[in-house]
Design a protein around this nucleic acid. Structure first.
Lengths: 295, 295
DNA sequence: GCGGACAATATTGTCAACAATCCTCGTCTT
DNA sequence: AAGACGAGGATTGTTGACAATATTGTCCGC
């Protein structure tokens, strides 16, 4: 388990990717701390109702994490999740337990638990006695994901128009600002990340954590779809569309905001339709080998 | 299955419930087989796309399940899930690993995996070094769940109005029929179960498996909310409302169907509002002791 | 030269023992 | 007598070894 972490974390089933473990464990402090905070704030109430009097001290203990296990698992989950979000983990790639255990310096049981969580989030697929693989959404799933996003984000935007505070609006505008700046400076990866963050922010400001978590899952799965059927890393979201949505919300025009969001997602999905047609049916081994899609 | 499964599966933290393991493993062939089938059909593709040529033989092997582990886990998950759905597992009750392992005749590792899945579905909460407990949704969560259901079911109903086949309509009508029959015959539990099944059927017929899975999760969590803040086991869904929705879909009046569904869920939530007000703030120990809500 | 059976290896799945933590209850102190 | 303290038991968390399975490479027969 200890030993050199130069172990090959994965080897693509068809792509035979070889990457050092640092690809996953690289610092990126600005990336993996804020999302983990969001995650914690949203879905880790832990001490819910049973003993209301010592909830404070309990939370304190949890903050220190008596044993590193839980925190390690969280870090691992976030790292892998962000790797999928950044499209550093190609769909179909196998994630081997021992390799991940070595990379993260934990035992296989913990790896297994984290992989189970990722499977619940539909980011990986588990084939019995075979292993877990980065999810490769089918065409039908891809369309369903976009349909679901249209439904949920429209609802969030409509709610947000009603409940948005000046502070929230400022937050949104600042984020769009940063996003545009990133794209202008040529940092595509940062732009894409902020673009995803924009949708997450919508969910958080709308105040419905249930829908927020759903959207969170969908947003995380979207890059998988994009990579499965496109291959190009063009920016996922047109920036002016984001800022237009924010403006509609600020003005209080709910219907316009909803329409814009709907168009925004349609726009995004439309780019994939050609890819859908190309890849539907046969396995896309041709594309994985870098060849033009056969037939 | 055989032998004495008299082990105390749980002992409530505040209620000190003692129940025999038969409560979980009891036959109910009509209950846990159909849902598990549905579960399989929906969210266990396993062999998704990678090798399309031998998918048949692979599925065959999976059908036999070379080792019983995976199938056992599925059975366990469904049983526990249905137990929550039937409100046989009170919110806050602890689920102990060894007891469950004894009851299901599996080792703790498998129990642990299943509990992790249940946690991902928000049906249980995991407190580090403490154990897992049946989820006790907060008031805010409860409202969010209903809001999310309104959003998703409205979308499903609207879609369904467009794509419903005669066969699908017949299926829905038959289900409503059975539901009403169950309520008339006084079998509340069967009625409630069919009532839940109605919402699941909507999701399936609408053809969006992503939204379907989300709704599945929400529907499973709803009884938890109901039990947390109501305590009464009145039927969750008014039957005539179900049949009215089906009729609107059959006629093709999407807006009317959506409005009816919205009203239906509002109606359901409205019954809980009093409970919300009563329980907001302090823990509802009065209700848990069988007393009238204090103050 | 080619296809299929067979062995070697790598990987996942299972299990039981051990360690750490939390809860309960008895005892001691004030 | 009431509260603090600590030992004991119960429960969760962790680790490593072992078994079962899939995959890959090799050899033999055709």
């Amino acid at each position: 388990m200890k030993s050199e972490a130069r172990a090959e974390v994965w080897q693509g089933g068809a792509e035979s990717i070889q990457a050092s473990a640092e690809l996953l464990t690289m610092p990126r402090p600005d990336l993996h701390t804020p999302p983990s905070f969001f995650e914690h704030a949203e879905l880790a109430p832990s001490s819910l109702k049973s003993p209301p009097q010592d909830a404070g001290v309990e939370a304190l203990v949890l903050g220190r994490t008596p044993r590193a296990g839980g925190q390690e698992a969280e870090r691992m989950f976030d790292t892998l999740r962000n790797a999928v979000l950044d499209q550093r983990l190609p769909p179909g790639m196998q994630l081997k337990e021992q390799a991940l255990a070595d990379a993260f310096k934990v035992n296989r049981a913990l790896v297994r638990a984290v992989l189970a969580r990722l499977e619940s989030a539909r980011l990986v697929e588990h084939r019995p006695n075979r292993g877990v693989f980065v999810a490769t959404p089918t065409v039908a799933e891809a369309r369903d994901i976009f349909a679901a996003r249209r439904v949920i984000e429209a609802a969030l935007v409509r709610t947000l128009t009603a409940v948005a505070t000046p502070a929230g609006l400022a937050e949104m505008q600042a984020l769009v600002e940063r996003e545009q700046a990133a794209y202008r400076s040529g940092d595509l990866r940062a732009g894409l990340r902020l673009s995803v963050e924009f949708h997450r922010l919508l969910a958080r400001l709308a105040g419905n954590s249930v829908l927020g978590n759903f959207l969170e899952e969908l947003v995380a799965r979207t890059p998988l779809v994009v990579l499965s059927y496109k291959g190009s890393d063009t920016p996922s979201c047109a920036l002016d569309e984001h800022s237009a949505i924010v403006e509609a919300i600020a003005v209080g025009d709910a219907e316009r905001a909803v329409t814009l969001m709907d168009a925004h997602l349609n726009h995004l999905e439309a780019r994939l339709e050609s890819g859908f047609r190309a890849a539907s049916g046969e396995a896309d081994i041709a594309a994985m080998l870098g060849l033009a899609p056969a037939r």
